[in-house]
Design a protein around this nucleic acid. Sequence first.
DNA 1: CAGTTATTTGGTCGAACGAACAAAGTAATA
DNA 2: TATTACTTTGTTCGTTCGACCAAATAACTG
Lengths: 222, 222
Amino acid sequence: MSEALSDGAAPAPGRTRRNRGSEVVRHALVSAAIEEFSAHGFEGASTRRIAEAAGAHQSQIKYHFDGKDELWKQCLRRLVAEVDDAIAEALGKADSPTGDLAVVEAVIRGLVRFASRRPELSRIMMHEATSPSERLAWLVEHETGERRRTIVTLWEGLRAKGLVAPVDGEALYHTAIGASSLLYANAPEAVLMGIDPSSPDVIERHADALVAMFIPSARPTR
Amino acid sequence: MSEALSDGAAPAPGRTRRNRGSEVVRHALVSAAIEEFSAHGFEGASTRRIAEAAGAHQSQIKYHFDGKDELWKQCLRRLVAEVDDAIAEALGKADSPTGDLAVVEAVIRGLVRFASRRPELSRIMMHEATSPSERLAWLVEHETGERRRTIVTLWEGLRAKGLVAPVDGEALYHTAIGASSLLYANAPEAVLMGIDPSSPDVIERHADALVAMFIPSARPTR
DNA sequence: CAGTTATTTGGTCGAACGAACAAAGTAATA
DNA sequence: TATTACTTTGTTCGTTCGACCAAATAACTG
C-alpha cells in the first residue's frame, strides 16, 4: 500500500508553470494536511498553510477535494491504511502457526512502533475525539469501529482463559492506545521534559514494558 | 481548594444590569473557557463563545484577563490545582503510615477517577502537546514538569526493587497518563463505540486493571 | 493544427476572529 | 450628594478564515 510519490513542495523554482497531475497534487496536499491537522486540529488548521506547504494554491483544495472536510477524510483514509499495513506486517513477522498470545504481542509492538514512527494518526484522533462532531461519527463508523471490535473480541477470549491482564473489554481499546501512543502523540511535551521519544532504545523498552504489562503470562520473546 | 462560586451564565434575565463583581465574572469565564478549550483546542476556541456561555461580553475577557492567552493560563492553573487536590485527597485516604506501593496504587486510582470526573485537563493537554508552542513550554515549566519528576523518582525507587512493572522512567509518565485518561478524554469516541465512560462500574474496573498491571506484586486492596 | 479537457492562477465574498477603545452604567466612599 | 473606582456595553479595526468563480495556462485528442 505504500506509495512512491514524493511529498515535495514547490512545483518548480524555475520560470514556467508545470501541471503536476491530479495524483501528485492530491498526494502532496494530503501529506501537508496530515501535518497541519495533527499539529493544530481540524478547526485550527488553515487550508492556506496546507496549500503553501504542498506547493499549491488554496483553490486547488476546492478543485481536488471540494473542500476542507473531504481533504480531512482523505488524510484519515491514508493514515488508517498505514496503521493497517503496519499491523499486518507485524503479524506477518510472527512465526507462522502463531498462537493468540503471539498475535497480541505483535499487535502491541506494532502499535508502539507505528505510533512512534507516525504519531500523526494518534494526534488527529486525540484532537477529534474530545467533542462530538460529524467527522468523529464518520471516523468511528467507517474507519476505526470495526478494528476495535476485532481487537476486543480477540482479547476477551484470552481474558476468559486468564492469559492476559484483567482489563475489561470496555476499557481495553483506549487503555492500550493511550499507553502505547501518548508518549509519541505528545512528543513535544516529552521533549520539554528531557525525553527523546524518537530514540529506538526508548521505543523498544516501552514496547517491552507494555508486553509485560498486558501479557503477564508471557516471557519476553524479543 | 474547591470554590463555592456558581458557574451560572446569564447575569439576570430581568431588566436592569447588575455588576457581578470581578471574582464572580472571572470564575464564570474560566469555567466556560475550560469547556471551550477542552472541546476545540486553543486555536479553535472562540472568545465570543466563551463569553456568551459565561453570560458576559467578549470585551470582559480583555478587561479581566487581558486576552485569550492569560485566560487560558488561568484555566490551566485551576485544573492543575484540581488534580493536585484530587491526588492529595487520594493519598490522605490511604492508611496513615502508608507504604510506597500503597501510595502508587492511590495515585493510579486517583488519576483514573479524576480523569473520568474532570476530563478537561487531559483534553487540553492532548490538544496542546501535539506541537511546540509558548503555551506548552509554560505548562511544562510552571505546572506539570515538577510533578512528573516527583512521580518518576518515586517509581524508579520501586522499580529498582522489582516491586512494580518494568516501565522505564522515560516512558512511565505518558504511559500512565495515557492508560488512565484516554478513555475519558476521548469519551465522545467511546460513546460512539457503545461504551459509557461515565459508568462507575467501568471506571472502577478500569482502575483495578491499571493497578494490577502497574503493580503486579500487589494483591487488590479495593 | 484546432478543439477539448485538465489544471492552475488570482482575486473576491461574507463571516468570524482577537484586540482595542470610548462611553455608559454601577457600586462604594466621603 | 459629590467623587471616585470598578465593571459593563457597544462598536470598530485589521486580519484570517473557507468558499467560490472567472480567466489563464497546460496537456491531451482528434
